[in-house]
């Protein structure tokens, strides 16, 4: 993808051209970023973006799906989705071995995961808006979440927080809403597709 377009260019495209929004899906590992990217792509074009796994850092390269068509008020809006590797401050191959990976595979995965974090950070310059995916069953006030949101604020990138995994009984999306009151938070279940319509409305409202 090319560099992020200016706010004015996006507005002009919205009014007179082909509305086109480039969205980055960011967050810590295992928050459900790829599950969300798949849910959106499946919903809009019937295809998936990438594989999902319980093992952290399953997505180790930025994966894109372009020209997904979202129908909104008799208008076609084209979405490019970039599913990014989870942002982490540390990567220990021994963690992967707990999931049954061999030492060799775990080390390879760790090496690729570090490269994925670097690539994800670089991609922040390419997107018009970011969906930060957080796991509603976890404490949201982590250094990684704070750092991601702080960067999005500093770069003035429109942001929506997707409070994911609300299908789980222990989910408390209210904690995410309380932790980041300055941001739009949409509780969703990417796995079941719950509340995706609300997410689409927020995308159109805040990213166009």
């Amino acid at each position: 993808m090319a560099k992020r377009r200016s706010w004015i260019l996006r507005k002009l495209l919205w009014l007179f051209g082909r509305p086109h929004i480039r969205i980055g899906i960011y967050g810590p590992p295992n928050a459900g970023k790829t599950t969300l990217a798949n849910a959106i792509a499946r919903d809009l074009v019937g295809e998936e973006v990438g594989p999902v796994s319980d093992i952290p850092h399953e997505t180790r390269r930025v994966t894109t799906k372009r020209n997904l068509v979202l129908h909104y008020k008799n208008k076609k809006i084209y979405l490019d989705i970039a599913d990014t590797p989870g942002i982490a401050t540390k990567i220990d191959y021994k963690e992967f071995m707990k999931y049954g990976l061999s030492e060799e595979d775990a080390k390879k995965r760790a090496k690729e995961a570090t490269e994925g974090v670097i690539e994800a950070i670089k991609w922040l310059d390419e997107v018009d808006g970011v969906i930060v995916v957080m796991d509603s069953t976890q404490d949201p006030y982590t250094q990684v979440n704070i750092t991601i949101l702080g960067n999005l604020e500093a770069r003035r990138i429109p942001t929506i927080i997707a409070a994911n995994k609300i299908d789980l009984p222990e989910a408390t999306p209210g904690k995410i809403i309380s932790a980041f009151p300055q941001h739009v938070v949409i509780p969703i279940s990417a796995l079941r597709g719950d509340n995706l319509e609300e997410l689409y409305k927020a995308i159109v409202k805040y990213f166009r």
Binding site: T89, K90, Y93, I118, G150, E153
Partner: peptide, 25 residues
Amino acid sequence: TPEEQLTLIKKAMEKVDIDKFKGIE
């Protein structure tokens, strides 16, 4: 700053050595 924090994470990832350095907290 948040930008410096993210750059530091990037630098840390560049320095990760599978056996010796796993990253930062």
